[in-house]
């Protein structure tokens, strides 16, 4: 057992929270024509119920791949991973998580409402139930009134919010977000971050959030996972002690800057391994 694991376990004990995602010694190697690519190696991580975990690291560090392994969109080639105590595949079949991609990925032939009801349709819910849930989900992301619009009639930020509503519509306890605000400008991004935090505080969902922005990671998270590339691995796990109902103002506090500094140091150290 590594030292970090011990620390993690000790940290987990007093709260005695349920582990939503449990990863032990996970590795993933892609076989390519140019030889094997080690996307992930020796990853140990526990995400507990109600956590907001950010994955941060330079591009190619495997943070998206790790999220995709959790979502069963990629298969790990070594180690153990369980979601709610079962395999990722079983968790996916049970619709245990909502996934938000880098792009909105809204289907252009469906109205916003029908995009949000898409997973509910697949889950065979009744029409009244679908409409009701879509309405509620769109309200959560402040998109009520746009039900009948088509995706291309909305701005990029609104489209991404609609895709978050879609991931929320079937009320999974785990939310996986892969750089959902990466393509948006800073102002829209701040606004959506605030909304996401409110949502997290209200619903007590567990969130795994991939980003490459240090302020975003520190501002949003209860736990920051710093990763480094080639092979993709975890080099630091930082817990933050900000309350759930934090505001953008905390970005001016010394605690915030201290954590941001530690993340930056971690990223720099991780990068140093290459050179």
């Amino acid at each position: 057992m590594t030292l970090k694991q011990v620390v993690d376990n000790v940290a987990a004990m007093p709260a005695s929270k349920k582990a939503v995602v449990d990863i032990k010694d996970l590795s993933l190697t892609f076989q390519t024509a140019d030889g094997p690519v080690y996307a992930l190696s020796e990853v140990d991580l526990t995400i507990e119920e109600g956590d907001f975990v950010s994955f941060i690291g330079p591009s190619g560090c495997g943070k998206t791949t790790l999220l995709r392994v959790i979502a069963d969109l990629e298969k790990a080639t070594g180690g153990e991973i369980s979601i709610n105590g079962v395999s990722p595949e079983a968790a996916r079949e049970a619709r245990a998580y909502g996934y938000v991609f880098q792009a909105p990925a809204l289907l252009p032939w469906r109205s916003i409402e029908r995009n949000v009801t898409l997973p509910l349709e697949i889950m065979d819910l009744s029409k009244e139930e679908r409409i009701k849930r879509a309405h509620d989900a769109l309200k959560l992301v402040e998109l009520n009134g746009f039900e009948k619009k088509f995706p291309w009639q909305l701005s990029g930020g609104m489209q991404q919010r609609a895709s978050i509503a879609r991931a929320l519509s079937f009320d999974a306890d785990l939310l996986l977000m892969d750089e959902p605000f990466g393509a948006l400008d800073e102002i829209v991004r701040d606004h959506l971050n605030e909304q996401l935090l409110k949502l997290w505080a209200r619903t007590n969902k567990t969130v795994a959030f991939v980003t490459h922005s240090i302020p975003e990671a520190v501002y949003l998270s209860s736990k920051i996972v710093v990763m480094s590339p080639r092979p993709g691995r975890i080099i630091d796990v930082i817990e933050t002690k900000f309350p759930k109902d934090r505001t953008l103002d905390i970005r001016e506090t010394p605690e915030f800057l201290e954590i941001a500094h530690r993340v930056r140091e971690g990223l720099r150290a991780g990068h140093g391994h290459d050179e």
Partner: peptide, 23 residues
């Protein structure tokens, strides 16, 4: 991306065919 999306909903072959690929 859209195919991955359908996979996250555990959508079967026919469901994905009619809801995503044929449209």
């Amino acid at each position: 991306l859209e195919k991955d999306l359908m996979a996250t909903y555990a959508s079967g072959y026919w469901s994905t065919l009619f809801r995503l690929r044929l449209p």
